[in-house]
Nucleic acid binder design. Structure first.
Lengths: 286, 286
DNA sequence: TTGGATTTGGAATAATTTATTCCTTGAAAT
DNA sequence: ATTTCAAGGAATAAATTATTCCAAATCCAA
């Protein structure tokens, strides 16, 4: 946990003097970094020594160490840039601000998505995908694109994959599935009717269903054998479809890479398929 | 630019003593953060005052300021986790390491991609897209998925969009284009034959061509009126298709958001299209 | 070359900052 | 009421940082 969070958490239990110091640091980390113990003490009307003692009570060897920790904490915060999480992209924003907010939201959804899925569940999903006779990928709308992207990657690994962007075709394909096959269903809402029906049908036929949905209760994940979750900033319609897609891609990319890890000859497959495609490239200098 | 890069750049022009100090800091930023001027001086066998002077020559008011700058620089580095840039995902990597590397590469390509396109070029592209009678999106393979994703978004804004994943159909569509239309062509290599031919044809018909390619010389961007660039970690086949796609998406997402910004009624369009889709959702609790 | 000018960089020292010690105060416990 | 102990500040010691000054090295121009 970052120092700032740690201080914030302990604030309650602190003596009044220490609390004032803590509040100041949490509230003004930037200033604090450029203040000496005496200056900080003056800022809040306390003694210089109390600031030093504050640092030590938190377990740091020196005030400088505390500063380093604060600096680091602020850095981690950059990762999820200040003001980004709670502020959607606004009409008045400058180009630079939009860039920061866009990348910030993307990063946040990626991080939260990987954090939302335990290694255990991921490796169960891997087992299933790895052992599957056939993998059927379903999704509609934007999720369909992610499904297709994942299907390309799985094909590169020589897997037996089924995907069509037309949900009727998807439905028709389900009737050929059975035990030993895997249905990989993507839907951020977890409520897309077509995807849901297909998952239900597959389940009935004994096919293992892996669902990738948002982290809210939803019908699709209730149907599934293995539940994977994606996190996007739901509130903001303007960016939500972007981050929901990024989250899904992060998850499928992760699964792909982990499959490559456990398939010794994966590089050959990938290499061969890339060679094959390169025949369709023009000479770059032509 | 980060202090470390700045120091590295100036290293050449420095006096021997300063160079030694600079090298140490660049090489051991972590240690440096915990060293006093005297300790750092002792470390490399120089005088304490020379360290102070070094800080001042770099334009910092004090050694502490330099430390803050270094700490910040290191923080930015964290964003692109240490070892990620130069290390691809290896077979022996643990789950946690893979997560970090994956997100690290994704973040890096997003950041570098937005940095690679000047605001000027982006706004020219926007002008074109905004004023276009029709927008024709082309791309094959993975780029086709990005093209489709972008086309969905443009449709949400009520734009006149043309896209088909079949390159023959794409080609057929080109013949209906003319001046006032825009061709948006995606290809990381910039050498996909179909996309290239389509772009050439469109150009001949007076259509404005916007190309999104990797940052190397390539035939597609040579044909284009407006050149946008994507950055991916080329070297590593295993992740390159992932980051190339992420870079393309970052760019198209950015364009989409900027279009929303300049279209006053955009929210209505987006809202309406989302309402329309929600008819196809099951009740989440059902 | 040679002699002045400039730069480099260290020693000494001043100034500032940090850490410790010691003491007072006040609140809780007995 | 007395003891105990935590809180917190004043004083001071220790350390770190900044400045000044000077010697040596280096660079130029004549």
């Amino acid at each position: 946990m970052s120092v700032l969070k740690k201080i914030e958490a302990k604030l309650e239990a602190m003596a009044p003097g220490d609390r004032e110091i803590g509040q100041y640091i949490v509230g003004n980390p930037d200033q604090m970094l450029r203040l000496s113990t005496a200056a900080l003490a003056a800022e809040i009307g306390r003694s210089q020594s109390s600031v030093v003692k504050f640092s030590q009570k938190l377990g740091y060897a020196s005030y400088q160490e505390l500063k380093l920790a604060v600096s680091e904490a602020k850095a981690q915060e950059w990762q999820v840039p200040a003001g980004v999480i709670h502020g959607s992209i606004e009409v008045g924003d400058s180009f630079q601000v939009i860039l920061k907010k866009l990348i910030g939201s993307k990063l946040l959804s990626m991080q939260q998505t990987v954090a939302a899925n335990s290694e255990r569940v991921i490796s169960r999903a891997l087992e299933m995908l790895d052992g599957a006779r056939r993998i059927h990928l379903v999704g509609v709308g934007a999720s369909s694109l992610v499904a297709r992207d994942f299907s390309y990657k799985l094909m590169k690994l020589g897997r037996n994959v089924l995907h069509d962007s037309d949900s009727h075709v998807q439905m028709a394909n389900v009737s050929t599935l059975g035990p030993g096959d895997v249905l990989f269903a993507l839907s951020y809402s977890g409520a897309s009717i077509e995807t849901l029906r297909i998952a239900e049908l597959a389940r009935k036929r004994g096919t293992t269903v892996i669902a990738v949905t948002g982290l809210h209760d939803n019908p699709l994940s209730r149907v599934a054998d293995i539940r994977l979750y994606t996190i996007a900033d739901e509130e903001r319609a303007r960016s939500s479809s972007i981050t929901a897609r990024d989250a899904q891609l992060t998850l499928t990319d992760l699964l792909f890479i982990l499959l490559v890890q456990r398939q010794p000859d994966a590089n050959d497959y990938v290499h061969n398929s890339e060679m094959a495609v390169s025949v369709l490239k023009a000479d770059r200098s032509s």
